[in-house]
Amino acid sequence: MMIPVLIGVSFAIFTLMYFAPGDPADIILGDMATEADKAMFRKEHGLDAPFVVQYFYYVKGIVTRADLGTSYVTKQPVTTEILQRFPATCKLASLSVIVAIITGVSAGIVSATRQYSLLDNICRVVSMAGVSMPNFWMGMMLIILFAVVLKWLPPSGFSTPRHWILPAITIGSSSAATIMRMTRSSMLEVIRQDYIRTARARGESERVVIWNHALKNALIPIITVVGLSFGRLLGGAVMTESIFSIAGLGKLMVDAIKVKNIPMIQGGVLFIAFVMVLLNLLVDVLYAYADPRIRSQYVRPKVRSAPESKEALNAE
């Protein structure tokens, strides 16, 4: 499935960029350039060739040399530039997702097990605020409080663990809210199931009931939400990156779009598509770990297959 998706994405983005108005020569060289300069620029970057030829060379470069082209602005290979920026984005995404999972899942469990209690109401209000609060505003407030007033943490940059805290909390808090709400509703549904009552009737401790029976069964939608938000963050959290001056993929893409740096835009979009595809694969594998019903899909049944389980699979 991966290859057709990537080919489709590459064709779509290449066509869009080709037909979008605005000549890169004008934009990169500025309005002080002469016609001769522009012709020189177009020739240098192969922009004078017809569409199909340009696309063919582009795909050929990717397939044979993993070459996404050369950035118009920096004259560096696009692949190098993306890989330079990716670690920061990846680190930020992972840290925020960790923050989000820890706070979101635990708050969700607490809310679900003590439905309509004071704690549940507080969690729900906070998560509502978390979802509705714009990321950049939250980031700025955190900077003002922790960097300017209290002087505990640095206001920008991403070099040391001290620098990671504020951005991770900024992004983490909004995903945490989504995860919390998903955990809560999913848990509530599971907790009403018969097997939970059975487990309690067997005299198992509340902890075992919640962790082993309820949470495990409520996990699938949570994994989906986590996977989605992680994928979204890997594409670059542009706002947060600008506020904290983090040199990530989002910032790179926005800068490229501003000056119509075509190879950079194409390369970035393709790269993000590639990461998303990989991530979806990973999420599918995680499903199998979390849910034996899905795992059985991939394992050849040793005994005869029961007809009703097949139906269940189709429903999946």
């Binding site: 700025m140 960097a147 002087k151 206001p155 920008s156 940059g157 600008s242 506020i243 001056s245 040199a247």
Partner: peptide
């Protein structure tokens, strides 16, 4: 040379001694 694209953040850097 630190790259800080947001104008307001540059002021904060000056204020915090960064």
């Amino acid at each position: 040379f630190k790259v800080i694209p947001e104008a307001a953040n540059r002021v904060i850097e000056l204020e915090t001694g960064g």
